[in-house]
Amino acid sequence: MNINLTLIGQTITFIFFVLFCMKFIWPPLVAALDERKKTIADGLAAAEKGKHDGELAKQRVLDTLKDAKVQAQDIINLAEKRASEIVEESKDTARVEGERIITAANAELEQEVNRAREQLRGQVVSLAVSGASKVLKREIDEKANEDLLKDLVAQL
């Protein structure tokens, strides 16, 4: 418990330690800590920014998707409209064509029928005449029978 030169020795030691600490220990450590603090702050800011950007991108994707859907719907609607138009058109065309064909066929048929009728009528007349001439071989009075024949022809 004596106060002696140790006092001075300890003072010198203390001053030496403080100076050493001041020169070589404190500045690099605090600089490193500050730098790390800055790095972390920057990292956090970047993360925040990234998150924000991500949200924006997400929003943009949703918007684009919505637009695309609308566009697709438009295209589909247009296509459907066009398709029904085409169907209607072809229906009309087909009907017109069908009618035309029917008309043509009808006309031809009528023609055929008329021709056949004319033919048949001629044949029947000649047949009737030949039959009648055979029956009435002996006496043919064309004049007498002319009215009869005319009636017959008209009846056919």
Binding site: T6, L7, G9, Q10, T11, T13, F14
Partner: peptide
Amino acid sequence: NATIGMAFS
């Protein structure tokens, strides 16, 4: 001595 040395510094 040690504590007084430091305190007086």
